[in-house]
């Protein structure tokens, strides 16, 4: 028996309404990636993480528990979890992340900020004030809760005098650039992915030579929703990497399966396994670059360690930073 969809979505929506995120994590965990980078608080241009990378270690842990519940009699009791979650954060008990995952995903955001600094981009960060953009609520069709969250994010940006945000993941890019304008009158925030910002900077050049074959796994959201296809390739080539393309690539990229993981973990794993096979077919001793935290988690899990799969920023930082 699949997980009870209404209760699972309800739990996330309750979190969004009560705790302003679908998956509450400590503020410290959301902001610690910025340690040592001396990023000023606020400013007209800010890096906006939406906590997507920071949330992933917790979601990985939660999904592992949900896989145990899926197809078991325990699924009938998810409604109780939702009931108690209204009083205290039940999510914290079902999602104790691995330290290695916390470190890995924190390092990715840290690397992205380092790359932006290296390119001479001036930006601030909203630290504890930053809010989740509401992606999951939008995808699941919970429009009232999503609209409320979108308004909260827009108000936050306006109150802090932000006019441009640099996003670090495709989902937050899509929501803030293409969805918010459809529901917020007068939405006037400029939204750019860090990949677009870096690719547009001619002065951003590598300082170390790297020789490696990198297979590019395009994110569906970047490639088909936002048209971010050339930028990651331009950056990898500029860095000195040799690009390999899987069978389904660019605008016809194959999904990693991640978007349905919170409700159908096993089905999601099957889609991820299909994609991993395509990546394996062209990756011979090299590595795979992802550009979305959900893709990275899904494909790493599906590959079972058979492929080196890392976020694109991990490869770029080796060439462009000290």
């Amino acid at each position: 028996m699949p997980l009870p969809i209404g209760d699972v979505i309800g739990l996330m929506v309750d979190n969004l309404n009560k705790r302003k995120t679908v998956f509450p994590i400590p503020h410290k965990r959301a902001t610690e990636w910025a340690k040592g980078l001396n990023i000023p608080e606020g400013g007209k241009t800010v890096i906006y993480t939406g906590s997507m990378y920071q949330l992933l270690p917790y979601m990985i842990a939660a999904v592992k528990n949900m896989e145990l519940v899926e197809d078991s009699f325990l699924g009938k009791f998810v409604f109780m979890g939702r009931f108690f979650n209204r009083m205290f954060n039940v999510s914290a008990f079902v999602s104790m992340p691995k330290k290695a995952d916390v470190k890995r995903y924190r390092q990715i955001v840290h690397n992205i900020a380092k790359l932006l600094k290296k390119a001479g981009v001036e930006f601030g960060y909203l630290y504890k004030k930053e809010l989740y953009a509401g992606t999951l609520a939008y995808d699941l069709g919970v429009d009232d809760a999503f609209s409320l969250q979108a308004k909260r994010v827009y108000d936050l940006l306006k109150e802090n005098g932000v006019s441009t945000v640099i996003t670090v993941d495709p989902h937050t890019t899509n929501i803030m650039r293409s969805v918010y304008p459809t529901i917020i009158d007068g939405y006037d925030i400029e939204v750019k992915s860090y990949l677009e910002v870096l690719a547009a900077s001619d002065d951003f050049q590598p300082i170390h030579s790297v020789e490696k074959e990198i297979t590019v796994h395009d994110s569906c959201v970047y490639a088909r929703h936002e048209g971010v296809i050339d930028e990651p390739r331009q950056l990898l080539e500029r860095a000195g990497y040799t690009i390999k393309e899987p069978k389904d690539n660019k605008a016809l990229t194959h999904c990693c399966g991640g978007p349905i993981e919170s409700i159908f973990p096993k089905m999601s794993h099957t889609i991820g396994t299909n994609r991993v096979q395509q990546l394996k077919d062209v990756t011979n001793g090299g590595a795979v670059a992802t550009m979305c935290p959900i893709c990275m988690a899904s494909l790493k899990k599906a590959s079972g360690g058979a492929l080196e799969i890392e976020d694109i920023s991990s490869f770029l930082v080796k060439a462009f930073c000290d």
Partner: peptide, 30 residues
């Protein structure tokens, strides 16, 4: 809810149907 909203269908649709948005509409209804 099994739809990935990946838009592979939309990329290939010759009638310009906003398939992902339609799925989202049905989810919103439910």
């Amino acid at each position: 809810y099994q739809c990935l909203l990946c838009k592979m269908c939309e990329e290939n649709c010759t009638a310009d149907v906003h398939i992902a948005e339609n799925v989202r509409f049905l989810r919103s209804y439910i």
